[in-house]
Design a protein around this nucleic acid. Structure first.
Lengths: 346, 346
DNA sequence: GAAGATCGTTTGAACGTTCATATCCGACGC
DNA sequence: GCGTCGGATATGAACGTTCAAACGATCTTC
């Protein structure tokens, strides 16, 4: 085993100060409070900084200032049977949004045998991060309670409890589905079904509630079917029951694009033509659906806006100590495609 | 704007030392070199550490010791038209593997207007991370040259150049495709085609080369078709040309599951039954393919093993200064499913 | 023209840890 | 009984930065 190679020493503030002929603190100010410097000094110092390629040592800066410029994102455990659409697009958006604010994203997950809360505590106690960004927030999510108890900054994609910081952002799933049901009703459909998967997930519940509100408002006959799980077999089974029973619905609103894949599969097997025999709408706008024929009507999550809002709220807590007074609800973006059928379908 | 809230002071090494009735260094040793303590001291100290919930401040530790316990992973830019299968599974595996080694993963990406190399330099200069984990490595990837030039530790999923550290891990794509062609040949197929997408990507080239080697070895008639891009329209167009031309192949090896989706789409439109009229094999084992009927034969990437090997190699460089003498090639795992047809197909 | 206010810059200290070295203490050899 | 060794613990210094306060110079004010 070779020896650990010698510690490479980088450019320090002293080096820059010496070359620029000013003091340490002036260098520090040039970076952190440039308005305090005389313009000509700033220019000279900046040139030297640039020339030497100086960047403040992140550890030293953190140690002294108490700010880490790092946000932790507990990665949701990705079930291969139900790939989380967020994992791709949302994470991207979060990294981009925090990058623009000068923060970086630390991806964390509990070690084997460690609870979620313990993992959070470890990061808090070691003062590794400034705050947490949570997604896939459940009702009464223990992580929220834990962070609230610890008084540690966080922002959540998904609603928090009434006695918790309202630093959340969520999509108005219910309204989006209500609107979708409206479009379905406008196309003359009377018997409509909602296809859900493993319930208990707040967003699925919201979407289902939106459906129920929608059918009530439009006076439609609406039924809810739930697949017991997320894998294709179970979804197909539930969908088949839905499409082969008595009073087959003429339109299906799926709780997610993943479920819509099941509808396409069963419809094809049953000889039903989507867009004419059966209107289909879903939620999420997963990239895979680009393959579906006819193209799937769905609701796109404004992931960029969500990420920006979350980061903005989190940093307001971290940097200014200001906790938002209310959550932020963003609209889903309906994407109308042929699966819904033409406006004058029936 | 409310005032920044008062700096919360955590438990420090001094606090623990006072309570345990020993010195600072003994606490430090209890965590970093427990063998140096008398067993009874260790036990007593550990109890106090536990009781007070002490964790060394990460910044202070890093500043003094020079090790950050953070690995940077430049997130590949995810093209929605071609969702990167790695983004999900690979990232997960990387986080898990580095977590077990006591490291965390920092997700980075260039700020707008910043080059990839500049983003790396920033992290190096600010001493934010101990090393880099790269994926989606291109031939002559500028990041490799840059890190090699800087002498900074990295490990790469994908081969590096001959004059660069051999700290890479890769999948033996060529061999996996050769084997797949062998299976196809064993089923009696003589006219076989390879479906590729936008070339220039090393893994796609490897897979194509494997195909060519396979058809040569088995004396088959093999042709290569390339879709100009990765979006469904282009893939479908290329696939249709392939399946409607003269001397239609009886088997298709796709360079990726994403491309196989096109084959299924076109085959259905053309009335070809997959598994009987047409054998199909692909690569990647994406979760979506669980929906395909008949199930898709493919090659699974051993993401867990890859991630473990990469982390292990990277940490050997970081911690011991040992650079691997040669790259590591791992086999792909063939997953035989009905799309290939029965063993005695033709 | 002296006292104060303002601006730009410098200085000493502190953040919390680990490194390098020193000290203590009992065991051992002769 | 004295020196030596070695294991266990303690002490001073250092990592590189920013904070808090001080400083000197210039500008106001009456």
């Amino acid at each position: 085993m070779a020896a650990r190679r010698p510690r490479e020493r980088g450019v320090t503030v002293e080096d820059v100060a010496r070359v620029a002929g000013v003091s340490r603190q002036t260098i520090s100010n040039a970076l952190n409070a440039p308005h305090r410097l005389k313009p000509e000094t700033l220019e000279r110092v900046s040139a030297v900084i640039e020339e030497l390629g100086y960047r403040p040592d992140q550890s030293a800066r953190s140690l002294r200032s108490g700010t880490r410029r790092i946000i932790a994102y507990p990665a949701p455990v990705d079930d291969p049977a139900n790939p989380n659409p967020l994992m791709g697009g949302f994470l991207e958006a979060v990294v981009a949004a925090s990058g623009e604010a000068g923060y970086r994203v630390l991806l964390v997950r509990p070690r084997p045998g460690q609870s979620q809360e313990q993992a959070l505590d470890e990061l808090i106690a070691a003062r590794t991060v400034d705050g947490f960004l949570l997604s896939d927030v459940l009702r009464d999510d223990p992580r929220l309670a834990h962070l609230t108890g610890a008084g540690f900054p966080f922002a959540a994609f998904g609603r928090t409890g009434p006695d918790q910081p309202q630093s959340w952002v969520d999509v108005d799933s219910a309204q989006a589905v209500i609107d979708m049901v409206g479009l379905v009703a406008a196309r003359g459909h009377r018997r409509v079904a909602f296809l859900a998967s493993s319930s208990g997930l707040p967003w699925m519940d919201d979407r289902r509630d939106g459906f129920l509100a929608g059918v009530r408002r439009h006076g439609l006959a609406g039924q809810v079917y739930s697949a017991p799980g997320d894998d294709p077999g179970e979804i197909v089974k539930a969908t088949r029951a839905l499409l082969t029973g008595r009073d087959r619905p003429t339109a299906i609103v799926a709780g997610g694009d993943w479920l819509a894949l099941g509808v396409y599969t069963v419809a094809r097997a049953e000889g039903l033509e989507i867009g004419t025999d059966l209107a289909v709408a879903a939620f999420d706008d997963l990239p895979v659906t680009a393959w579906l024929q006819p193209a799937l009507t769905t609701v796109r999550l404004p992931l960029d806006r969500i990420a920006k809002a979350l980061i903005s709220r989190l940093l307001q807590i971290v940097e200014d100590g200001v906790t938002p007074r209310a959550g932020l609800v963003l609209p889903g973006e309906p994407v109308i495609r042929p699966s819904l059928g033409p406006p004058d379908a029936l």
